[in-house]
Simulated assay, not measured.
Amino acid sequence: MRDLCQRVDQFARWAEDVQPPVLFWLSGFTFPNGFLAAVLQSTARQQRISVDTLSWEFIVSTVDDRNLLTPPEDGVYVRGLYLEGAGWDRKNSCLVEAEPMQMVCPFPTIYFKPVENRKMSKSMYMCPCYYFPVRAGRAGRPSFVVGIELRSGDVAPDHWIKRGTALLLSLDN
Rank of each mutant, 00 (worst) to 15 (best):
A15K: 05
G80H: 01
D74E: 11
Q46C: 12
G34K: 14
L150M: 04
G164E: 02
A86M: 01
A86Y: 03
R163W: 05
T109L: 05
S93F: 12
N67P: 01
D74C: 08
D74I: 04
R151W: 13
A44D: 12
L168E: 07
E149F: 00
A44N: 12
N117A: 11
T30N: 15
S170L: 03
P114V: 03
K119S: 15
F112Y: 08
P106L: 06
I49W: 10
A98V: 04
P32C: 00
W56R: 07
D158P: 00
R48K: 11
L54Q: 07
M1H: 13
G137Q: 08
G164V: 01
V155T: 14
M120A: 09
I148N: 00
L81V: 00
T53D: 15
L36F: 05
V155R: 13
V8F: 13
R135F: 13
R66C: 12
I59Y: 12
G164Y: 08
P114H: 03
E116T: 10
G140V: 02
T165L: 04
I161T: 08
V145Y: 04
N92A: 14
S50M: 08
M101E: 14
D52N: 10
A166R: 14
I148C: 03
D74V: 04
L68V: 00
A98M: 09
L150V: 01
G28S: 09
T30P: 13
L168Y: 09
M1W: 14
N173Y: 07
F31Q: 15
A139F: 09
C5V: 12
Y77Q: 00
A12L: 13
I110L: 02
G164K: 05
C127M: 00
L40S: 07
F29T: 02
L169A: 00
Q6F: 10
E84W: 09
S61T: 15
V60S: 11
P108C: 11
L95W: 04
N67S: 12
R163N: 09
L83G: 07
K91C: 11
A166G: 10
D74T: 03
V76C: 08
F24S: 01
L69M: 08
S27G: 15
V76A: 09
E97G: 07
R90M: 07
S152Y: 04
M120F: 07
P128D: 03
V115P: 08
A86H: 03
C105Q: 14
Y125S: 02
C127V: 00
V145K: 02
E73Q: 11
F107W: 04
D3V: 07
L81K: 00
Y130I: 02
K119G: 10
Y130A: 06
C5A: 14
Q19K: 09
P133V: 05
G28K: 01
T70S: 06
V96D: 02
F112H: 04
G87I: 01
I49Y: 09
T53V: 15
K122M: 06
S42N: 15
S50K: 07
C94V: 04
G137S: 08
V115E: 12
F11S: 03
